[in-house]
Simulated scan of single mutants.
Amino acid sequence: MDLSTPPPDLYGRPRADTFFRFLTAFGDRYSPALGGPLLRRNPRRPFSRPTEALQLVVTARRRVAADVVELTLADPSGGPLPGWQPGAHLRLTLPSGRERHYSLCGDPADPADQADPAGSAERSGYRIAVRRLPDGGGGSAEIHDTLHPGTRLTARRPRNGFAFCAEPAVLFLAGGIGITPLLPMVREARRNGLDWHLVHTGRSADTLPFAAELRALDPARVHLRTDDEHGGPPTGTELLAHAPRGAAVYCCGPAPMLTAVQRALDASPAASLHFERFGAAPVTDGEPFTVRLGADGPELPVPADRSALDVLREARPDLPYSCKQGFCGTCEVRLLAGAPDHRDRRLTPERRADGALLPCVSRAAAGETLVLDL
């Protein structure tokens, strides 16, 4: 990674200069039409076309920790795959039709993973690691039980919502399977000679994926910390004590870990925090409202501390979902009536006006009823 350039966008494309990106967006929105109304789009910019789904096959499978399997995915014909950057994830469509997001945990700069070691931006394989969740939505169990070498599935191109900015000093904090997006970042930091440290926490040694692989990177900079050896989970202060002065912190783990780190950040040597959650953030500012299934269907109360998606799935268990964080769009439903509070990061104003709604994060004012086409 060239440290003089900003991190790429969600699809791995280099980001444009901030000023010119703003200038382009301003021109696209406000270009006048010779005395007429404002244009809705810049006519010089071509319409974007949706990218085709990737066809993948499982080529290898191995156990990397208790209840964690690593899969290697490749093009069935042996062709190259789109490149990616540390922090990127794949949106997989499993054989059952479920869609789930999994972080890429390989090395995008490893010549062994490249179709062209001389500098191609494409790879011949992706690596993901998945922990079985007994109380999950079935995606992890399906992967553990049915995905073996030879299994076919599809995926969207890698996207990156957790980009690594390669600051000079970095602390990586991983909780259990949260090591998956951080492992490529650690390799990148090591390759570029950054001042980095990693703390990987878990219940016990056998629950820590890639422990041997991490130790091999630099035993002096890798700290494996287990609850059973230390009498419980670490505090945020304990975790951040490993940060170099002025470091950027990259954290991925369970909600209690993220909360502890956020609360201890101001009193720590670290200067900034980047994080990725395992799932949806807890609802802390919600109001109770109601969703109705169809114009004449049943009404379901949504408590202040629960999402509409969770309530809807109790009545419609087959309702699809994936990220639960408002960026993938899998759970999209159509709004027939009501005034929603859109909180997603995916839908455009035009799509919202047309009735699209993501119930995983969107809510409504107290006492409001949202009528959904379900």
Rank of each mutant, 00 (worst) to 15 (best):
T146Q: 15
R49G: 09
R343M: 06
A356T: 02
A205Y: 06
H197M: 08
L133M: 08
A205K: 12
A308T: 04
I179N: 07
E167T: 13
P80I: 00
A248M: 11
L319A: 04
G138F: 00
L240V: 06
S362W: 00
S322K: 08
E213A: 13
F162E: 00
R29T: 11
D344H: 07
F289G: 10
A247I: 02
G279K: 14
F47G: 13
C165R: 15
T284I: 03
L81P: 01
R13N: 14
S124C: 08
T284L: 10
P149A: 11
P46L: 08
P168M: 05
A112I: 00
P134Q: 08
P14I: 02
T59Y: 01
P320E: 09
V311L: 09
G175M: 09
P32I: 02
G253P: 12
P244E: 11
G367K: 08
A353Y: 08
D195A: 11
P108Y: 01
G178W: 00
P184K: 04
A166V: 03
G136H: 11
L217I: 14
W196C: 03
A365P: 12
P254R: 10
L71D: 06
R334E: 11
R313G: 02
P168R: 13
D195C: 00
A115Q: 10
A243W: 04
C328N: 11
R215L: 14
P303I: 05
R203G: 09
R15L: 04
R152G: 06
R334H: 13
Q262S: 13
L56E: 07
A88N: 05
R127M: 05
L357Q: 09
V222F: 06
R225S: 11
S204T: 08
P8S: 07
T235I: 10
A281G: 07
R61E: 06
R29S: 05
Y126N: 10
A88H: 02
L90V: 01
T59C: 09
D296E: 15
E314D: 14
P14Y: 05
L194I: 02
V199E: 12
V302Q: 04
G35I: 03
S31C: 06
A220Y: 06
P6K: 09
S77W: 00
P303Q: 01
R21D: 15
T59R: 15
V283R: 14
P134S: 09
G338L: 04
P301A: 03
F47N: 14
H200I: 03
V261Y: 13
A174R: 02
L224R: 13
D67V: 00
H342G: 10
L173Q: 01
G329S: 05
H101Y: 05
Q114S: 09
A212V: 10
T290N: 08
T348F: 09
R13E: 08
A353H: 14
P219K: 03
S362C: 04
P288F: 02
D354A: 15
Q262M: 11
R190F: 03
L39P: 05
R156F: 03
D17R: 11
A169P: 11
A220Q: 15
G106S: 05
R159V: 03
P359M: 04
L194E: 11
A66E: 15
